[in-house]
Nucleic acid binder design. Structure first.
Lengths: 208, 208
DNA sequence: TAGATTGTTAATCGATTAACAATC
DNA sequence: TAGATTGTTAATCGATTAACAATC
């Protein structure tokens, strides 16, 4: 697992420490929270620079700020969300986009009973307007909360309008279709199946 | 990345191939779908046994069945879901539990306006009944679609009732609290932040 | 100074890729 | 048999851990 998968967790823990007023933290303490080793923490942080101080540890607010910069959170990207079903609504309501470097500009759906409804201060738009919207408002990223079958066409529109970053909850293989795009997949059912597989060992005990 | 993270994807692609009537597939073909290499596919499949045939490839229905068994999908585990907000509803409505080795027995929430409502044939129960329910019906797994603050108490109840497998959507650190439990975390915001980080390189072009 | 803890190098471990003999 | 493709070993690569000198 590469460093960048761990950065968001460092960021979260540092934010917690900062909010609870901690001023310093050692690689050992951070490792305990992360469930990793002090050695790895130091190795990870040194990928980006020497943020610590020998004999002291790391300055919490400083390290927090450094990671903020590494993650690029001081600059916001504009994003649209497609699919305002339960999953889309969960994303809209529970994710703090401001704290993750995005501004959610608009949400789209094709369901007439959803179009025009309000959600977190946004009016749900008709996906038929997507092309026009993305032509006028240059978007940086798209969050795809659609079923597999419904991704291809709006994906094409988004790509043609210049969007090159996708947060994809479907099993549609965007990365294959658009090799130059940045695709972050969230495959919930794969995750569930991994859980299921990991339960197999313990099962033998039940049966024995 | 370990083999077991890739197994669910092999399974999915094999199911597709099977449904489209394909009878054979080569490591090369599978690799193309997976976005990996023929070498890795053969290495992966050989972890579990020699399922292929030299000069021919892999028999699709046979390999599918083998992976089904490896994943343990012929045996169902009983699960409860906690938190019937948007995220919980998305999970209930969009995940095919039968196809992932689980039977979803009950859903719980603490919100009075949700308790008693119907969802996919289930009546949402009061989380206050959780302890009694898990005492009577031995559960194998729990799907936690709750915010961080709301996980600790029901988590304790579930653990005491014998549940040792958790699909956890919150940032509450179950793995740390229950070292003997199997915890599969889905951290949506970490995933989004990884996307954000990966967009940084391309940003420099915009600015240049 | 003495103690603590980083930065960094070297050693280890595991996963991926390459190569090719085995064999259908 | 000839062609294809696996199974499997060896080589490479990258990530993790261990160790310790540097230094606050």
């Amino acid at each position: 697992m590469s460093v960048i998968r761990r950065l968001p967790r460092y960021y979260r823990f540092l934010l917690e420490l900062k909010n609870s007023g901690e001023l310093r933290v050692s690689s050992h303490d951070l490792a305990a929270k992360m469930g990793s080793t002090a050695s790895q923490v130091r190795q990870d942080l040194n990928c980006f620079g020497g943020f610590g101080q020998q004999g002291y540890g790391y300055d919490v607010p400083k390290l927090f700020e450094e990671i903020r910069v590494i993650l690029g959170l001081e600059h916001d990207y504009k994003a649209v969300l497609l699919g305002v079903g339960n999953l889309g609504r969960a994303v809209i309501n529970h994710i703090s986009f401001e704290n993750h470097g995005f501004t959610l500009m608009a949400a789209f759906d094709s369901n007439p009973s959803l179009i025009g409804t309000e959600i977190r201060g946004m009016t749900v738009r008709d996906v038929a307007e997507l092309e026009e919207y993305c032509g006028v408002n240059r978007m940086d990223a798209a969050f795809l909360c659609l079923p597999k079958e419904s991704v291809e066409q709006p994906g094409e529109i988004l790509y043609r309008s210049g969007v090159r970053a996708f947060w994809n909850f479907s099993h549609f293989d965007l990365a294959m279709k658009y090799p130059d795009a940045i695709v972050e997949n969230v495959h919930l059912s794969d995750s569930l199946m991994t859980l299921r597989y990991r339960m197999n060992d313990s099962r033998s005990e039940d049966k024995a």
